[in-house]
Design a protein around this nucleic acid. Structure first.
Lengths: 407, 407
DNA sequence: GGTTTTTGTTTATAATTAAATTTAATTAAG
DNA sequence: CTTAATTAAATTTAATTATAAACAAAAACC
């Protein structure tokens, strides 16, 4: 145990209480000092002192008086969210999504920039910088209010260095995002894997608020997992945790681009579903999708399959259900290993959730070993395709609201 | 986040520092106050005050003076381990192992009691009680010094209730171990799953001391995992984490007693290895093991296979290597999910590690996706078959040395 | 209008850590 | 052999912070 031991100190004590109060305000705003004291079990003076400091930093403000229930009217406190803005990016395989929000994640502006076919590290970094400049200088935005930039990136990310180690869908290696952005914009920059930002977004603004141990599954071109344990994002030793897409569930199964056999990704990812449908069509099966794709197999992708399924096509419905079945196998393995209270499914597939999720739930309840495992709550992210970029914003909020930060 | 928020308070501060000092003494004994202050970055008076309290409780004592390096000789402090004893039990499928040790896990006495073929909850509890009485009243033992009983149990355990929920190898359900033992012996009783106690033992006394995020794999009749994250045992939401034995790695593979197909356990557990060998023999393959088993297939078990392999038998060697291969698949999946710094393999199979572990390592380095994953350290527990029962002792030490406890 | 309730502040106190000082013991240098 | 320097431990004093209790102000209720 070569731990960096945490010693009990005055600073720690104060910093714990400050972040405690700040987080209570964030979650329960508007709220009075007295209410905070009651909820946190801190004494009123302690709350008053720390609130005074927080007011000075400007991160919270006093609002109008609230309604009394038989006594002095409470002075309500809220985050001064409007005065602090955060930029979030989602660097996907086809485009870069940029948003700017308040501290409460109220969307102020959203833009999208396509990534050209042929790209290299420098061009991508340039594109990222341009996209940030573009949203920063929008008319409605006061640039001085921006406090940080969070970046979500698919593939393997080293969040400490702030580097994209490998982005398979762009086929790029070692992109020093954090270093470059910090130099360009001179503010906090955080970089994280997309599945992990997704779960952070859920933790701060989504379904995760009711639970503190859950897993987010990001199903799209790949399949990634973001693991939250005790209200904290779990990274693992070298930040490669959550690579559920390459969980081998059929060692004698089909070959995966990664070189192994029977990876979950070869069954349940968007491209895998499309490939399966194409194969059936080539074998002579017929489906509504042929019409939708104008009889061009190359035009078939997961979205089109979803459209066809929605229109009642049996072949496509079955394909999606089967993807759900295999995803359920993978999730059962995950449940048996880390036993989360909740699993939240998001990413591209969440559009087609009505067809997929039943298969997932059914498989888990069939294959899991114990009652509690069978009953693991499996839900769909309510943020849909934006889950990742919202998580990117949350990356910065963690910095701001966490214990160490002095606001 | 419905967390029980921890407020910063004087008690917390002091309790953190006390446990910090206690743990430093445990790990570095003998050690002087000045040295503690240097290591912990606490100030000398803080250390002196807390050491005074700890001396009063009797848990530590002042030893002879140490060597000076040019100044006043330091007063060395050590745990008063000899004055506090802990009982550890390992309730396996065939027998109950009981040990009694000092706080430093120095073995004082060890006993073993066979579990009869037909058993029920009451009989098992009686047997457990008798075994504890037996070791308690040994001549060498001063009963007054015993402070707690730790119990390791295979299968699904609810550590909060202190109950064995399901013990597959004994086919027993809902055994209220903690309640019964606390009533009988009136001291701290902790009950935990065997793989998890194993990893706790490694954390406190074994290989885990150099790392704070690792996984212990207990391979025997079943396969279980104990996960340690940031120096803490990980339980998951309903304490069923670590059920790696039923990770499905071949969905179209052989049926497992659990009802699913292709569980890791059907490839790499002791019984599975034996079954595989028997099958080959029935098909007419020949092996040295026929001689060792006196041509009685029923006598073939994992241990005998290991003996044969050690004598150079090819069939048995291959069988063990193949078990290692599949275990490697399971561990690769685990590495991709939770990315531990280290994997420690123990349990029955650790006897045959020379044949198994190479297969495991080779598979992981072939199948893992990144360099760091490939290089995950995979080692054998140095405690061998005793790893579990040592962990049972550690269960009590956690209580004693953890932050909340006032010793 | 008086009483009660609620909110928030002030004042004083207690529990700690933090810093500076003192005492003691030992070694090394002169 | 003496003295200075060094290290260890204990003690004193100061600073920091939470806590407790008292208090003031405002509103609601009777």
């Amino acid at each position: 145990m070569t731990t960096k031991w945490q010693t009990g100190s005055f600073q720690l004590m104060k910093s714990m209480n400050r972040s405690l109060i700040l987080n209570i305000i964030r979650q329960k705003e508007p709220i009075s000092r007295a209410e905070i004291a009651k909820l946190t079990k801190l004494t009123p003076p302690t709350v008053s002192n720390l609130v005074k400091e927080l007011l000075q930093t400007g991160i919270i403000i006093e609002r109008t008086l609230g309604e009394s229930s038989g006594g002095r009217k409470p002075t309500l406190l809220t985050l001064n969210g409007e005065n602090f803005h955060v930029i979030g990016l989602d660097v996907g395989s086809k485009d870069i999504k940029v948003i700017i929000t308040t501290l409460s994640c109220k969307l102020l502006k959203k833009k999208c920039f396509p990534i050209p076919e042929s790209i290299n590290n420098d061009k991508l970094l340039e594109l990222i910088i341009d996209s940030i400049h573009s949203i920063k200088s929008s008319e409605e935005i006061d640039e001085k209010k921006i406090i940080g930039i969070g970046v979500a990136m698919h593939g393997i990310v080293d969040p400490e260095k702030g580097e994209s180690v490998f982005a398979p869908n762009l086929n790029l290696h070692h992109i020093p995002i954090k270093a470059v952005l910090e130099k360009e914009f001179d503010m906090i920059v955080k970089v994280e894997n997309d599945a992990r930002t997704m779960s952070l977004g859920e933790l701060w603004f989504g379904n995760g608020m009711s639970s503190e141990s859950f897993v987010c599954i990001n199903v799209g071109r790949g399949i990634g997992a973001g693991i939250v344990i005790n209200g904290k994002l779990f990274h693992g030793n070298h930040s490669i945790s959550g690579e559920i897409g390459h969980m081998m569930i059929d060692v004698n199964g089909p070959k995966c681009p990664c070189g192994n056999y029977g990876c979950l990704q070869t069954f349940s990812s968007g491209p895998a579903i499309a490939e399966g449908v194409k194969k059936l069509l080539r074998l002579g099966h017929s489906s509504l999708i042929e019409e939708l794709a104008e009889n061009n197999l190359d035009k078939i992708n997961a979205e089109l399959i979803y459209d066809a399924a929605k229109k009642g096509d049996q072949l496509c419905t079955t394909a999606l259900q089967q993807a759900g079945y295999y995803l359920g196998i993978g999730l059962t393995n995950l449940i048996h290993l880390i036993n989360p209270a909740q699993i939240i499914i998001g990413g591209g597939v969440s559009n087609a959730h009505e067809f997929v999720i039943e298969g997932v739930r059914k498989t888990v309840s069939q294959k899991a070993l114990t009652e509690s495992a069978k009953n693991t709550e499996i839900i769909i992210s309510k943020f849909g395709a934006d889950a990742t970029v919202i998580g990117a914003v949350a990356l910065i909020l963690v910095e701001l609201f966490s214990s160490k930060s002095a606001a």
